[in-house]
Design a protein around this nucleic acid. Sequence first.
DNA 1: ATCTGACTATTTAAACAAAATGGTCAGACA
DNA 2: TGTCTGACCATTTTGTTTAAATAGTCAGAT
Lengths: 216, 216
Amino acid sequence: MLYLHLFIEMNKTESGSEKSIKVQLIIEVAQRRFGLYGVEKTSMQEIADDLKLSKAFLYYYFPDKERLYKAVVEKEQNEFLARISEKILNIQEPELLLREYVSTRLSYFRTLLNISRLRLEAYSDLKPVFRETISLFKEKEKEIIVRIFEKGVSKGIFSIKDPDQTASLFLDLLKGLRISVVNDKKTLFIEQKEYDRLLEKTIAFTDIFIKGLKIK
Amino acid sequence: MLYLHLFIEMNKTESGSEKSIKVQLIIEVAQRRFGLYGVEKTSMQEIADDLKLSKAFLYYYFPDKERLYKAVVEKEQNEFLARISEKILNIQEPELLLREYVSTRLSYFRTLLNISRLRLEAYSDLKPVFRETISLFKEKEKEIIVRIFEKGVSKGIFSIKDPDQTASLFLDLLKGLRISVVNDKKTLFIEQKEYDRLLEKTIAFTDIFIKGLKIK
DNA sequence: ATCTGACTATTTAAACAAAATGGTCAGACA
DNA sequence: TGTCTGACCATTTTGTTTAAATAGTCAGAT
């Protein structure tokens, strides 16, 4: 396994970002194609053609297509987390924070949907490699929400018994609302109109939820 | 079309319940088989065998399998609505009403899931005949919630600008939570454990939502 | 008017071949 | 030695045909 050293480097997501320029290039090209046509409708050959290199070149840097997909998803995740972190630094009010989180998260959702182009619930039959990535992201997400909630509690604004549980409930509701509203049916790509409706509902939901958390 | 007169009778859901004893019998037998094996795994022949009558007998009373399915679903719907109506008569507090609605609705959901045995989102590719039934039910459902909300408002307990909009948001959230929590994946039948978890989350959600509606 | 047996029409399933795509590897080249 | 390729193999997907199962029809018996 010639690529082993590279693969290990890729996976230490913490020190990350030390990916060679070539790996980054592949990811970017893949990201674009995935974004346009989805993973399933993108062949490794096409990505190689974009780069004007051979298909075997890709397999020199990535063990398989799934790992490349994973890398793209992780890049998107990091971009999302970066955006959120930036906002967290500048905003003090937990209420506003939550609202910012929600809208940023929504646009991330749209990107992800474009990349995967799978029915939404296809989340279920994903490979172990992915479960890891997804659950890691979920944890990070929840951590952010928990912190926002705790901030609200310590500021005497929110009344929350179990911030951890409430956070995962909140995320489940957001996810559920997404699924329930965009009912992907045949179209499979999210339309602007649907997205707007989702945004509207999400905001209305957040308002009520926040009010439900507030101390009377 | 020999069945026309019957079909018309069946469809005037309002005066309803005038269905002949035979039609009712068929529906009940189908209801049991659908509940046990799902629509797709139940053949018309099997239903006929249960009744010890010919398959053609069924087609004398129902134009096609889909309409029989529809009749079963409508029966379930009516049973659900009847249970809810009964509760509404006895409960005065909007808060309690909403909680009762939520838990009754959840058990109805479980029944429906058993009957259809389709992936949850299979809701999407349903025939026009069904869209009608579903959307009618949705309207009735929303109407109930709206009335609960309005009662809460008039009693000075809730503060809701647009009860109609809030009601459909509430229903979307419930639906979303269901989908998001039971992730039907391969199992396809809902396990007790999952159901309990859903119930727990639904209750927690309802608590916060109600608090979010209340006047400070 | 109600119901059936025998029929037809559709849908689903199985089996197979052809094409597309993921993935491997020996070796060329720096 | 590290990087990359063309030619190759293995698996999955797609298309086609055929057979079986099931939905649906109808003339006619009662």
